[in-house]
């Protein structure tokens, strides 16, 4: 009996299949586990490790690098108050003070009722509506103390359940579509494409070589003529050499 539910496990396997190397699915799987549990439990870490083929310590070590992945339990709502420069200039620290008072806990803490965890966030990229607050990564802009209180009331009363899912649920739109062919076929197609491109390149190079050879012949002819004629003819031959070099360069540039 696995810790991750059957549905979560199915989605996890689908995610792993999206990538050429399973480990790439590590962070998306951590998000998925948080969707189930609200945070990243040791049991989930162990199963993610198995799914992507690394040790649980590797999963923990990677997850702990990222702010959004919580290896300790958090509230149903993670309230991130941005305090970076744009929000600070518009009263973010005063707002944060109010948030802490209202929720009865400081930065990093969870409210006594277990509902809210408070974060002092770096820039959330919503600076046009500073100061901004994100609840479970859903944005609220131009937040005042009064608006924050109303927001908390709405969340507690369940009036924002559609807009703000419980912590951990990040992307509610599931992927459908995709190439829907085996990796073998994609690889074969890529090889064929590479061969076609290589052949085109070779043809181009051959053509360029022929052109270059022709130019060289012409240059040599001219040089011979020039040598036989006057001394200033040497300059022209040098010019032809330069043109020759330029011709050599072009095909390498992809004929663009």
């Amino acid at each position: 009996m696995s810790h991750l539910s059957d549905d979560t496990m199915d989605r996890a396997r689908q995610l792993v299949e999206l990538y050429p190397h399973p480990r790439s699915a590590l962070v998306p799987l951590c998000h998925l586990a948080q969707e189930q549990d609200g945070w990243l439990t040791p049991e989930a870490i162990a199963e993610i490790a198995e799914l992507v083929g690394v040790s649980p310590a590797e999963v923990h070590g990677t997850a702990s690098f990222y702010d959004m992945l919580h290896t300790e339990p958090v509230g149903r709502y993670v309230v991130a108050v941005c305090t970076n420069i744009a929000c600070m200039l518009r009263g973010a620290y005063e707002l944060l003070e109010h948030v802490e008072q209202r929720l009865g806990t400081g930065v990093g803490g969870t409210s006594p009722d277990g509902l809210f965890t408070v974060e002092d966030a770096e820039c959330l990229a919503d600076c046009g509506r500073a100061p901004c607050v994100a609840v479970n990564h859903r944005f609220f802009g131009d937040v005042t103390a009064q608006r924050f209180d109303a927001l908390v009331d709405d969340l507690v009363a369940g009036r924002l359940d559609d807009e703000v899912p419980p912590h951990g649920t990040l992307i509610r739109v599931r992927r459908h579509g995709g190439l829907r062919v085996g990796a073998d076929q994609v690889a074969a197609e890529r090889r064929a494409m590479a061969e076609r491109a290589a052949a085109a390149k070779a043809a181009e190079a051959a053509e360029a070589e022929a052109e270059a050879a022709a130019a060289k012949d012409a240059a040599a002819e001219e040089a011979a003529k020039d040598a036989a004629a006057a001394a200033d003819g040497a300059d022209e031959a040098h010019g032809a050499d330069e043109a020759d070099e330029a011709d050599d360069v072009r095909p390498a540039d992809g004929g663009s």
Binding site: H137, R138, I171, V173, G177
Partner: peptide
């Protein structure tokens, strides 16, 4: 960016439509 939840949903939704 992970914090852009709505953006992630919008791009994934649009991608599903684009495949179709």
């Amino acid at each position: 960016r992970g914090e852009l939840a709505l953006g992630l949903e919008r791009v994934q939704g649009a991608l599903n439509e684009a495949y179709e």
